[in-house]
Structure formats: C-alpha cells, structure tokens
Amino acid sequence: MGAAATYFRHLREAVVSIFDGMAVSASHLIRRPYTIQYPDRMPVRVQDTLPFRYRGILDVDLEICTGCLACDRACPIDCIAIAIEKNAATREIVISQFDIDLAKCMYCGLCSEPCPTGAIHHTTEFEGADFSLESLIRRFIAEPVVAYKAKKGAEPDVAVADLLTRGMTYVDEWAQPGSDKPAAVAAAPQAAVAPVVPVPGPGK
C-alpha cells in the first residue's frame, strides 16, 4: 500500500470512527440514567425491597417474649443481655432488662433460630449509623414486664395473634431450609412484600 493510500485510509478511519463514537455517546444521552439516588430520592425504600429473611438490625416483640433466655445462650458473642425474675407465687417470669448491643452483634441469626415464638428476629432495617457506641445498645425494656406464656388448649391471645403468626412464620422458615419461597412469604401477612428491584427514577 502506498503512502498516499495510507494517508487517506487514516483520514477515512478517523472520520468513520469518530462518527460512530459520537453516535454511541449520543445514544447514551437519550437514555435514562442508571443512578440510584440512595438514600433520599428512591421511588421505594430499600428496606421495603429486601426479603423477609434479610438479616438486618435485631428487633424484639416483647409482647410474645417468653423470657426463656434461649437467645442469650445462643449468642456467640454475648451481645444480648437479659435479666429475668421468677415470681414464685404467680409463676410468672418478669423481664427487667433486654439489651442488644448492636455494635457487637454480627448478624449471624443464631439468636432467632431457637426462639420459641419468633419474638427476637431480624428486620430489614440496616441503617444503623450513629455518633456513639453507647447509643448502639438497644434497650427494649423501660419498666419490667411480665413474659408471655402460651395458654394450653386455648386460642392464642387476640392482642398478640398477629405478632405470633408473624413470629412463627419467621421461625418456621428458619427450620425448613428452602421454605422461604414466595408462597411461604406470601402466607405471612406482614411479609407479603416481594423482593422488588429498585427502579431508578427519571433523571432529576
């Protein structure tokens, strides 16, 4: 190939490749941006898009806590501190302290596994940033409360029925691996949120 032919080939290649390159970037200009503007400009909160079994920050439903200390014993790093007293006369258990140190918690989920009622469970909440370690200790009890006790043979208490249903769904799913399929999730009334991929809003 002669020098002149190479010269004009370079010219042609430059023009053609820049032409196509400009077309590619122009096609990006007319597309919707892919940015997800976490946290404040989301069409759906991220927490609402997470699955039911997501191991977020721990929560305790004290209304259905039996005070059995199973979670305290299961915790491998002792981030759960529970204090109970047994009332010999009424045979009730009084819980006077239920603290979870989220700074220590490693979100292993071993505490929610042995819970008989599903009172201690993970939520989909994950935004735990704070300004001091002290404030990361969640204190669930302000005044001592009487622990929940299942009545034999009777219908569960109406006041805590919803909580119990939710808790048992949570525990059952743990017990049966693979049962956290959409059908099982849909069975739980509060867990009907299907995993939704966050859709980026229009470019703002």
Binding site: H28, L29, R31, Y34, G203, K204
Partner: peptide, 18 residues
C-alpha cells in the same frame, strides 16, 4: 450534566433546582 448523561449518570443535582 451532559457528561453525566453520556455516562448514564445524573450529574450534579443537589444545589438548587436540578
């Protein structure tokens, strides 16, 4: 903003309208 859109981003959109 134009570069951002070319890269499928949004670009500066916090100070004032857009």
């Amino acid at each position: 903003r134009v570069w951002a859109r070319i890269q499928s981003r949004i670009g500066p959109n916090r100070v004032g309208p857009n």
